[in-house]
Amino acid sequence: MPWIMRGLRHGVVTSRYPRLGDGYGDGFAGGVTVRGDVADAAVLDLCIADCPTGAITVEADGPLLDRGRCVHCGRCVDHAPETFSYSPNFQTARSGREGLVVPTVGEDDASLAVLRRRVAQTTAMFRRSVHIRHVDAGSDGSDEWEVAALTNPVYDVQRLGIFFTASPRHADLLLVTGVATVGMRDALLATYEAMPAPKIVVAAGAEAISGGLIGHTYASLGGVDHVLPVDVYVPGAPPTPFGLLYGILIAVSILAEPLGGTR
């Protein structure tokens, strides 16, 4: 009896996202973005040298930042705030690895559109409900907290027809965290192969995308796509629950990714 009252006391705590915006999520610094003003070459060089995962490169048009590598250490933001800043946007997941490099340029749109159409065709039938099998392929442990948070009352993904399933036989979507270790390779492949087609793979977190800070070692393959074909990449170190939710929603084509470049 006391628990019934306790349950009712809070009222509704669940986010309205994606139907409406979420005040907290929208203000959360979900990724580093590249701004218009370019810092001095010397400062940029410092940013590149200091980046622990080599996420920053400089092209003719200016600096590029790979969110698939970024671990949010904030050094570039400290060195060159006019060029790099945290952006209050958690909708950073993309289908296609190239989409994680910011700022994206317009000419990639054609290839991106093809990629997205493929994902959309695969997942058309998941739109009403999708069952997720999560596999830890060598995470640092924090990613699992964020994945598990999706079922707490704030995110409550069941309301969107998203369910976690115990058996790969019932799963439509494989959500992978961690660097993809040599030790987990067989188990990860076996899980993927046990899933019925059509199926879709989401790599969650910088470690799953590129190996993050761990990168390649004798025991780490440096990213899930060394083992499986990945459809959607969710950046973050670890990705936040909102970031994960967005990634799942674009994977099942409930939400569409922005076209025309990303900042």
Binding site: P52, G138, V179, A187, L213, G215, Y218, A219
Partner: peptide, 21 residues
């Protein structure tokens, strides 16, 4: 299954990077 070889990544890292590791 989960072994990532973190100890190997520490070797040669700067102190600042090692904290992140």
């Amino acid at each position: 299954f989960k072994h990532r070889g973190v100890h190997a990544r520490f070797e040669g890292a700067s102190v600042a990077d090692a904290v992140l590791l």
